[in-house]
Amino acid sequence: MGTLTNGRTTIPFDNWSAPHLDWRKAGRTDLDPILKDCVILAAAPDAKGHPHHSIPDGTRMVAISDDKDQESPVLYMSRLEISKFFDGVIAGEFDEFRASEGELAAAAAATT
């Protein structure tokens, strides 16, 4: 059995597509089993036989999924790819996809 943590609490969690991984979600999110609200990441096994030529065997990989459903699809990215994405997030290149203040307030009100 894998786990899911937000840095404060850890619970048992397995995704059927990637069992036994230890998943992490943002610390600003809830970990209540009823309230699922976040993208989750896990260190995945190193690549082996990846179909794309830019991912040679032994490449360190990251699994990405959604905590709302333990049967959610899992996307695998190399750590280089995820690092480039994080750099873009930090630089504000994806700010247009962030929830508005109104959306955040509505989500908070829905959970109380």
Rank of each mutant, 00 (worst) to 15 (best):
G88Y: 09
S100D: 01
D67L: 11
V74Y: 05
K68I: 04
L80Y: 06
L104T: 02
S78E: 06
K48C: 13
A91G: 14
D69P: 02
R98H: 11
R60M: 09
E101W: 02
Q70Y: 07
F97S: 06
L75D: 07
L75A: 03
K68T: 13
R98E: 15
F94K: 15
G58I: 14
L75F: 10
P56A: 00
G49F: 10
D66H: 06
A99G: 02
S100N: 01
S72W: 15
D87M: 15
T59K: 07
I82N: 02
K84F: 13
A107M: 13
M77N: 13
V74D: 02
R98V: 02
K68Q: 06
D69A: 08
V89Y: 12
H50I: 13
F85R: 09
K48D: 09
D66Q: 15
F86Q: 07
G58P: 06
R79S: 04
E103L: 02
D87V: 05
V62M: 12
S72Y: 11
F94I: 11
E103Y: 03
H52N: 10
F97I: 04
D87N: 07
G92P: 08
E81S: 14
S83L: 11
G58D: 11
G88I: 05
L80D: 07
M77L: 12
A105G: 06
H52G: 06
I90C: 07
E81G: 10
K84E: 07
A106Y: 14
H50E: 08
D87A: 13
S100I: 00
T59Q: 09
E81N: 14
E96F: 11
D57Q: 12
A107T: 13
E96I: 05
G58R: 11
Y76A: 00
R60T: 11
S100H: 01
D95C: 01
K84W: 12
A107H: 07
E101H: 02
A107K: 04
R60H: 11
A99M: 09
S54P: 08
I64Q: 00
P51C: 10
A107S: 14
I55C: 03
F97P: 01
H53G: 12
Q70W: 14
M77V: 05
A91T: 02
V62K: 00
A105I: 03
T59A: 15
I55V: 15
F86E: 09
A105L: 08
A107W: 10
G92V: 10
D57G: 06
L104F: 02
I82F: 09
